[in-house]
Simulated scan of single mutants.
Amino acid sequence: MEKINADDYRISAKISLKDRPTKVDLQATEAQIEKKLAKVRGKLSAMQDVMYAYKKYAVLTCFQGMDTSGKDSLIREVFRDFNPRGVVVQTFKTPNSAELEHDYLWRHYVALPERGKFAVFNRSHYENVLISRVHPEYVLHENIPGIEAIEDIPKNFWKKRLEEINHFEEHLVNNGTIVLKFFLHLSKEEQRERLLRRLEEEKHNWKFSPDDLKERECWEAYQEFYEEAINATSGQETPWFIVPADDKATARLIVVKIIRQEMKKYHDIKEPELSEEIQERIRFYKKQLEEK
């Protein structure tokens, strides 16, 4: 099996999505990939247990991708061995009325992980510079002063939002949150095949919505805005990773390997030591328990 190196997927310079592969051959069978996935996610789960005890870092993992890119199943398979107390999955859909009473980052801020925990954002704060940009009429629901119609949205509006997102993530990092962002890079042809599967296989019919086809018509716009967002917000401490997503099993293994490799960089994360007083009295405590 080919080795997976996080740096091969990390975005550290300006990129074009058209130049990035949507499929990679790891020189392994699906069974081999799934076996490796199980092994690595077990190790990642053990790392999370230590982080939970250490309680100084939190981890925010953000997953973005076109419809059918496999976000739901990837999240399920990557984090399935985690202790439930240590991971929270948040899915962000159309903002509700309460969320619209606040600024666009508020609902993401209140969903951030506690120290010691992982948060998984299935879609994230980036929806506000992706879906809202493809469909700028959504901005009107935010009740921003001075914006009463699409024509009122300033030319630098999206650039400012990207800058605000950079500041938001910088604030998180400065306060102990490890930020990892993943774009599941799907080809348009593979999306077509997956949408057809939803229609052809009865057990998947419930996943299909006519809106999927409407959004597919905006493919080029989404690619353009994803590319711009990734280039503008992939920092040294807030990196984007572009993961080829045409093969689901391969994408899952790449993601779990990247997360583990990034977590291993934090050498200070370790189980807390017992106080000297407790260490000195361990034999006494054991004796108490043995006698009762």
Rank of each mutant, 00 (worst) to 15 (best):
E262T: 10
E170Y: 07
L26M: 08
S124E: 05
F157T: 06
A98F: 13
G86A: 04
D25E: 11
I269R: 12
R260K: 11
Y222K: 07
Y138C: 14
K56V: 05
D67L: 02
N143C: 06
R41H: 12
E164N: 14
E215C: 08
E271F: 15
D7V: 09
T61F: 00
Q288W: 09
K18R: 11
F121A: 03
I15C: 02
E280H: 11
E142C: 09
P84K: 11
R198N: 13
V173F: 01
K286E: 15
K3Q: 12
A98M: 14
Y104C: 03
P239L: 00
H167Y: 12
G70C: 03
F208G: 03
A251R: 00
V134Q: 01
P154N: 08
D8P: 08
L112G: 06
N175F: 03
N96R: 05
K155A: 15
F92N: 12
N143V: 09
K286G: 01
D247R: 09
A46E: 15
I258K: 14
E273F: 09
D81C: 13
L162R: 13
I258A: 11
L196G: 10
P239Q: 04
I153R: 00
T238R: 12
D81M: 13
I131T: 15
T94F: 00
P21I: 00
A232Q: 07
K207Y: 10
H108N: 13
E137F: 05
T233I: 05
K18E: 14
V255Y: 00
K56S: 12
E291V: 09
E137R: 08
Q261R: 04
H135T: 07
G146T: 05
Q191Y: 00
A58M: 02
H141K: 14
N122C: 01
K265R: 14
I33Y: 07
S16H: 13
L44Y: 06
V87T: 06
M66R: 06
I33T: 10
H135E: 12
N231V: 05
A232M: 07
A232N: 07
F118P: 02
G42D: 10
R281H: 14
Y52F: 14
N5P: 00
A119I: 05
A119R: 01
K203I: 07
H167L: 12
M47V: 07
A13H: 15
M1T: 11
N122T: 06
N128W: 00
K287F: 02
A98H: 10
E237Q: 12
L162W: 06
N175W: 00
L213F: 04
F121P: 03
F63D: 02
L74D: 02
Q288N: 09
F208C: 00
V255S: 07
K181C: 02
A249I: 03
K18M: 09
